[in-house]
Each structure stands twice: as C-alpha cells, then as structure tokens.
C-alpha cells in the first residue's frame, strides 16, 4: 500500500478493510459484553460490516446483486430483532436480569 499524500480516491480494498475492522469490533463486543441487549447489538454490527463488503463487491463487479444480498440481510436482521427483543423481554419478565451469565439454568 503506497504511503504519502492522500489520493483523490481510495481503492475498494480500503472499504473491505473497514468492513473487516467493524466485523472484528462486533466479534469483540459479542465476546466481551455481558448485557444481552449489547451482545445483540454487536451481532447487528457484524451484519452491517458484512453488508459493507457486499456493497463494495457490488461496486467492483459493477452488478447490483450485492445490493440485493444486503437488502435481504436487512430484512433478516429486522425479523431477528423482532423475535430477539421479544425473547429478551420474556427473559427479563421471568428473571429480572439482563446479565447473560446469570441465564444459565441449562448448564450442568
């Protein structure tokens, strides 16, 4: 990668690198955080990062298919959020906690 003054336009690989960074941050949040809602949001961050690479590949290949894939990802994310948040609400109603480590009745 050439270093020096900023070029007029950046290559697509920079977008992919940004996507990788965001995905890694999502993994980090997923592993480190203990609040169910935040863990859920980390998953959304990963989905977003993947969407960015879909759209970038769409640009590289000059085809709209990547956009369609990320559109489907959004739809699935919406369905997932509806069900997931309903589950979180139910868990909170029954246990009064959002800590992911305390919801472990199936362990042992």
């Amino acid at each position: 990668m050439p270093l020096g003054p900023l070029p007029a336009a950046v290559p697509p690989s920079w977008y992919l690198t940004l996507s990788a960074i965001l995905f890694a941050l999502g993994v980090l949040g997923f592993l480190l955080r203990r609040n169910i809602i935040t863990v859920f949001m980390s998953i959304e961050l990963m989905l977003n990062a993947v969407n960015l690479s879909f759209v970038t590949f769409s640009y590289v290949l000059k085809r709209a298919d990547g956009h369609i894939f990320s559109f489907f990802v959004m739809v699935v994310a919406a369905a997932e959020a509806a069900v997931g948040l309903a589950i979180i609400l139910t868990v909170f109603k029954n246990r009064q906690t959002l800590e992911i480590d305390e919801v472990s009745s199936l362990k042992n």
Partner: peptide, 11 residues
C-alpha cells in the same frame, strides 16, 4: 484483503 483483491480502479 489487500493481497487477494487485484489492483482495481479506485472508488
């Protein structure tokens, strides 16, 4: 990413 992607035109 930098290695695999061919030198494509900038965005």
């Amino acid at each position: 990413v930098q290695r695999i992607l061919p030198e494509s035109s900038p965005v």
